[in-house]
Simulated assay, not measured.
Amino acid sequence: MPRKVILDVDTGTDDAVAIMFAALHPEIDLLGVTTVRGNVDLAHTTDNTLRVLDHIDRGDIPVFPGLAGPIARDDLPGERNFGTDTADDPHGTTLPLPPASTAPQDTGAVEFLVESLRATTEPITLVPVGPLSNIATALNVNPALVDAVDEIVIMGGGDAVCNVTAAAEFNMWADPEAAQVALGAGFAHRTLVPLDATHRALVTRQTCTDLRALQTPAGTAAADVVERRIDAYRAVITGSDAAPVHDVVCTAHLVAPDLLTTRPRYVAVETTGTRTTGRTVVDNRPNSTRPANAHMAVDADANRLTDLLHRTFTRS
């Protein structure tokens, strides 16, 4: 039976690949996609999400707009340029896909999350791959919602690898209080996929060529957006004709748990530091007495991810 999934996104290029994977893989039943401000503003994350689903003929999957900013701050905790192609923002504001013919739902993301988790008779998997604002707000409305979730797979954080600041990964930095709520909630199983793991599963330009050769909408779109990431990341990953596609590692994990190597760790998110806001503080001490609150990915299999992308995008 397909796994029931709600995907929470801030759709730029890596979210786009994750959405297509979740929408097309036969072992995933994508119940809905919720959007949040992150890579770009909420209007663009929602529009980009609709464009992606329409492009692969999955406009039947509903899209629910969510929070337009962090849960406890007036704005993001720093400045970010949303409109340029750089390694931190390789997508610009609008994805290179035709405008969608479908529209977002009138129901908001938080209401959809609360009602879906409250009403379900089967476990649902949550996969937030943007800032955790929607997830934290839903949990603040009803903390018991965690009982309906078999696993939450969070793309975010970094131990040795960071991006938006010297101390933090973007999703955690963009709403650190929300991240701390999600990590502190009573989910039965939390999988945290940080930059340390996603940077181990780089997607190459040759993979893009192979995906484009499939001549499917998803294969072509994935090739186009990943090539944009590769061009943007060349200045960061010197000499590598490849780039991380962070969010699809999370959706691929749903059908191939062997993709990731994880370790039980206690992880907290810094919310008060002047230079370390959003830092994921990972307790790696062998003699630590803190109980682990996450299965933290420390490695990912690039070849396995490439094979999963090829197999899944053949179907569209």
Rank of each mutant, 00 (worst) to 15 (best):
H295G: 03
A201P: 13
T272R: 12
D299S: 09
A22Y: 00
D175K: 07
T204D: 15
N163Q: 15
N134V: 03
T49D: 14
A232I: 05
A223P: 03
R212K: 13
P176T: 04
T137F: 06
P90K: 02
A178V: 05
P176Y: 06
I237N: 12
I152R: 06
V164F: 04
R73L: 14
A16G: 10
T204W: 01
L95K: 04
P131F: 03
D8F: 02
E111L: 05
A87M: 11
A297H: 00
D88M: 10
D196K: 01
L260Y: 00
L117D: 02
P77Y: 03
A109Q: 10
P286I: 15
A23S: 14
L42Q: 14
T86M: 06
R311P: 09
R118G: 08
V52C: 14
F313A: 13
A68I: 07
I28F: 03
V127P: 03
A43Y: 05
I237L: 15
D247H: 08
T46N: 09
C208Y: 00
D147L: 12
T276K: 07
A300I: 00
I152K: 03
V114I: 09
D301N: 15
E151W: 01
H25C: 09
E151Q: 14
V193S: 02
T107Y: 05
F82S: 06
A213E: 02
T209D: 10
T107D: 12
D299K: 12
T120F: 01
A103G: 09
A223W: 00
D196S: 10
R229I: 06
P131M: 12
V181A: 06
A167E: 15
P98G: 12
T306I: 04
I19H: 10
P123W: 01
D258P: 06
G184K: 02
V161A: 03
D299I: 08
Y233I: 03
A232G: 13
A138E: 08
E169L: 04
H44N: 15
E79W: 13
I28S: 09
M20Q: 06
N48T: 08
I237K: 02
D57R: 15
T238L: 11
A179V: 01
L132V: 02
T46P: 08
V52F: 02
T102R: 13
Y233C: 06
L183A: 07
M20T: 01
R234Q: 12
G239C: 09
P194F: 01
R315G: 12
M20G: 05
A300T: 08
R234L: 07
D147I: 05
T261M: 03
V269G: 12
Q215D: 13
I124S: 13
D15Y: 06
R315H: 11
M20R: 04
P96G: 13
D307C: 03
P286R: 07
V226I: 15
P2G: 05
D10W: 10
L50V: 13
G239F: 00
V127T: 14
P264T: 06
T49Q: 11
R51C: 11
A242E: 03
D47T: 15
F64Y: 15
R190A: 12
L192C: 10
V269Y: 00
P98V: 05
R3I: 10
G69D: 10
V63R: 00
M155H: 09
V267E: 01
G38F: 02
G239Q: 03
D75C: 07
T209C: 03
